[in-house]
Each structure stands twice: as structure tokens, then as C-alpha cells.
Design a protein around this nucleic acid. Sequence first.
DNA 1: AGTTGTCAAGCTAGT
DNA 2: ACTAGCTTGACAACT
Length: 293
Amino acid sequence: MKIGYPCINRSIGCTANSTFRLASYSEERIATVVKNNLSCLRKILDFNLEKGFLFFRMSSDIVPFASHPVCKFKWASVFKKELLEMGDFIKKNSMRISMHPDQFVLLNSHDKDIVSRSVDELKWHCRFLDSMRLDGSAKVQIHVGGAYGNKTEAIKRFIKIYKQLPKLISKRLVIENDDRLFNLSDCLSIHEETGIPIIFDNFHHACNGNGTSCSDALKRAASTWREKDGALMTDYSSQEPGERKGKHAEHIDIKDFSEYLRLNSSIDFDIMLEIKDKEKSAAKALAAANKKL
DNA sequence: AGTTGTCAAGCTAGT
DNA sequence: ACTAGCTTGACAACT
């Protein structure tokens, strides 16, 4: 089991997701920003190795505007050496990597331009992971998309587009159960048709799982991951006490987390902690997990 | 130096 | 009709 946190490290004093305004785009600007982002990413991975966090989500802002028409910057060739070195480090230390393109990626949109932009966005994410020579266990996660008033049709469109995706994307793409629209059973029906692995989010399942058990859901999600996909990836978060339903917690509740581990100890899975205080909660979670072993 | 409105992209649900 | 929220943070223009 590998444990980690997404995108941002609050301890080491640099960010790997620095960006800028589109209006101030220039080749010089993007070259500088990507260089700094990669250098910080490397520092974060060093930090993570030292602390034992072997799972990390790389920010989509690491190459700002990567899929925007304005961007002609050849990041993969300019930073080839750095990227390969990063990949070697990741592989040598058996780290797990994921990326999570944002809400604008909608493969099931009615609008073909939105679909086309979404595919472009997925492409660069996959190329980024390819540039580090990471295998198919490094994943790019998205949600199914919008419902557009008819979930059945929305699911059909997702399946249709998925089947047309290039191998570059399909070997990395996974779908996550969301908290309002497409729950685990929707994702499973897409999996049936496509073979796409399902990343399991316990909090979304609690919000939108028809009251079905978390452990059973986790097992079903795990069954969608093939050997080449690696272990089941999961997102873990919990409700911020006293706040709106669905709001992520600021700090991990280690008692709940330990219980979650105990209930699911029969499955091997990796955990991305979507908790606002990032590596602080990850350290507590890792300590709890190590105590179990 | 500190404050704050705004940032490429879209959808849903709640007001 | 409008906007918070989504992995949210941080850029950049303004005091």
C-alpha cells in the first residue's frame, strides 16, 4: 500500500504548479515556469521519499496552457533530460504517480469542440507521463462528465468516445465515481463495456453510493484493475465537521482512517489523501498504516 | 508590502 | 438569473 497527497507540498517552500495569466504568455515565460515547476517537483519527490510517501499526484499546472493553441513550447524536448531523470527516480523508488485533469475535461459533451479540447488535454497529460517513461500504472483520472439531463445517454456517449481514444490515452485513463452524478455502479457499467479501471473515492461513495457498503464497493472497484494497471488507486477524504455535505475535511480523522484500513485490509490498494492540510495528514495516515503492518 | 479581484476551458444544484 | 463548488491556489493589478 502506498500513501500520498495531491499536487501541493506545504512544507518545503516551493510549488510545482506555478502558473501565469494567458495574457502574459511568452515562450520565455513558460520556459522559466516549467523549469521551476520541474525543479520543485523533484524536491517534493525527494521530500516524499524521505517521509515514505510513495504516491503523488502531479498538478496539471506543471506545464501551464499545455493544450492551449497559444502554446507552442516544446517542453518534452527542452526538458528531456530532467524528465527522464525524474522518471528514473520514480521508478527506482517504486513511486506511484497520478494526474487529475480538471472539470473542463468532458468526453461525453454534446459539443464536439469540447470533446476535442478534452482529448487534447488528456493527450498532453499522457505525454507528460510518457516523457518520464513511466509504465501504464501511472494514471490520469477524470470523472465521467456531465449528465446533460439524461444519464443513460451521457454514459453511452462516454463509451463511444472512449472506444475511439488513442492507445496513448486509453492505457492511462481511469474514471472516478463522483459525489453527485455518476456513482460506482454507473462507473461499473462503463467498465463492462470498455474495460476502463475505476478509481474509488470513499467520500464520493458515501455521498452518492445508494448506501451500499464501502468495503464491498472497494472490492468491486479493485476488480477493474488489470495487472498492467497496477494496484487499485483510491482517493480518501472525509466530511469537514459542521460544514456543507461534500466539503472536504481540513485535517484527517485518524480514528476513521484506521477503521477504514481495518475494514479493507484484505485488499492491496494505494491511497491519495484529499485532505486540505496535505502532507501533514499524510504523515499521520502513514503512521497509522505502518502500525497495522 | 499588503490587499483583493480574477484567472482558458463546463456542469450541476441551490439560491 | 446567478453563482458556489469542484483537487483550489496564486497571479497580477491595485492600494
